[in-house]
Nucleic acid binder design. Structure first.
Lengths: 343, 343
DNA sequence: CTGAAAGCGCTTACAG
DNA sequence: CTGAAAGCGCTTACAG
């Protein structure tokens, strides 16, 4: 039972492969092929269970209908959600997705980018790592469709969809300040990622602008080493909170939040009585089991959808017109005890 | 700046494309091509930044080096973890992965299978839904490399890697019984999936074998409708627990566990004081924040790795010999208060 | 040691 | 209305 090809059908029905191809691609009427012939060809194609070889189509047309998705780690909740939305949205346009995890390793990221290019993906959806700037610029200058998500480089002209990190963080900080917290610590990670810097800037600005009456307030930042061990990082977090006598802590990302909470639990520090906690980037865990944590929710679904749209704009040669190619989505601050979450 | 092809390099160096191809594929010495020529070709290929077109290679060789991964939902923690392991393991063999979510919809599953076949993936890694049995049998009979994961159909001859659902569940049940629980409920889902049935069978058998002294014990099963709303399901769970006056409950899968816990929290039912909870299939949430839940841990990483191996065996024409193609991995029961988790 | 040629399975001008 | 032919970019027998 060999695979049936266009040629097989052509031979069986006694017509040329061109005709079969036209019919199977719905161009029968356009080519004014007789109804009878059309029926006959369609019938035998069906009978033989013909499936076009997409690889041959790709080589011929130059389109693979495959998108390359480069994330930090597909097993991480945030990226997995992103991947799902992208899968669903891309499917609407007839595209499939190949995913790759960079693990925040720029060498690996570059290699993956090269590999995806060799496989002729039609476009790239990327949550970049710090070392990928040059490669991404190059792709874009070669007019390869690229969209960056979640993170970006300053002054980057490549289309992207980011989150309003500054706004979300500011809102959360206002909340803490209004509630009377004065010793607010900020915990971030040393990945040099733009979105982290924006969050930190919002934190710093909020602290700087605190009313003079709350004189005790001062900037207190801990920068965790991404590649250190979990235990080492937890130790640092715990020390940071205690030695600075913090009454509130802001985790710059969901990963840190989970790590931090594990640490707080081990240290038996009660939330929010002893320590108020805010985390940028929501997680099921918070929503379901630690409702006392306030969160700044990232609009993952929207990000995935918009990213696919920006990519389609590039693939379809600006068909939606020259709309804005650099989006900022709002992050939604949800104060503690809220269990509702927008869809 | 057009893409450079083999032909370009051949023209620039004044040799035939065959020679260039041999050199670039490391067959220079095999073909006894002169060292000088080899150097020259390699140098210009490098200078031009030549990247082979993998689509053309695929069409010619009949190998895409792409694996199709069909899971229930890539955004679900379990499947995302599986995807990550598979990505890492497949990479070692030079394969990339295209993922697809079936959403337990057999129509969608069939369509995805067809699509992957058209794209000429070299092999399939599948967590099947109940309606896919025929299609999978067909693929296998056509000698397409296929490996099933997590779930299976009874009497299925297709290579697969499953979990010892019966053993894991039995162990957990023994634990509950030994602890003195007598009104143990079992909550499962109506997907008709083999692994669910195995878990339920283990539960039933354990109940049936309970010492006569504990006469009150009886089989108490709730089967949730997968497609019902979350609220509806929570209502059912809550009613089930109360009306049966359960003192312990066993959730047949992680998805149900999370749902159930959300429900228990809303009802203010304390764990484990008022109700002991065991869940098949671990989740970070349990490990980190509800240590009072006992779990039956699925070896996700091992499953992913072994699945890739079984697929490679088929791709490499049984190169590892005729080893067992149907694996059962042990699930590890971890009684409550355990926070350690094996790597 | 190297080249000319066929062919993987399609699509699409071009010709009639 | 339909067919012959070129070509997408490679690999690999085959010939010399």
């Amino acid at each position: 039972m060999k695979k049936v090809s266009l040629k097989d059908i052509a031979e069986m029905t006694g017509v040329s492969t061109s005709t079969v191809s036209f019919i199977l691609n719905g161009k029968a009427s356009e080519m004014r092929i007789s109804e009878a012939l059309k029926k006959k060809v369609l019938a035998t194609a069906n009978r033989l269970g013909y499936q076009p070889n997409q690889v041959a189509v790709s080589l011929r047309t130059g389109q693979t209908k495959i998108l390359g998705l480069l994330v930090e780690d597909i097993s991480n909740n945030f990226f997995a959600m992103l991947a799902k939305t992208i899968e669903d949205e891309a499917e609407k346009f007839g595209y499939r997705v190949v995913y790759c995890s960079t693990e925040n390793d720029s060498k690996k990221g570059q290699a993956l980018l090269r590999m995806l290019a060799q496989r002729q993906v039609d476009g790239f959806l990327i949550t970049p790592t710090s070392g990928m700037e040059q490669d991404i610029r190059k792709l874009h200058s070669q007019h390869k469709p690229v969209v960056l998500m979640d993170r970006c480089f300053s002054g980057m002209e490549v289309p992207h969809v980011l989150v309003n990190n500054y706004g979300g963080t500011s809102e959360a900080m206002q909340h803490l300040i209004k509630k009377g917290y004065t010793r607010i610590g900020f915990i971030t990670v040393d990945l040099g990622l733009n979105q982290m810097l924006e969050r930190e800037a919002a934190y710093s600005d909020a602290i700087a602008k605190m009313p003079a009456t709350k004189a005790k307030a001062k900037k207190t930042v801990l920068t965790i080493n991404y590649h250190s061990s979990k235990e080492e990082n937890k130790k640092q977090i715990s020390k940071f909170i205690k030695s600075n006598k913090l009454d509130a802590v802001f985790f710059a990302t969901n990963y840190l939040g989970i790590l931090g909470l594990e640490c707080l639990r081990e240290q038996q520090i009660r939330i929010p009585n002893e320590l108020a906690v805010v985390c940028f980037d929501d997680h099921d865990i918070f929503r379901l089991y630690i409702p006392d944590i306030s969160v700044v929710q990232q609009p993952v679904e929207e990000m995935g959808r918009k990213a696919v749209h920006l990519l389609m704009d590039q693939l379809g040669k600006e068909r939606t017109g020259s709309k804005d190619q650099q989006l900022r989505l709002n992050a939604k601050f949800v104060a503690r005890e809220s269990t509702s979450r927008e869809a």
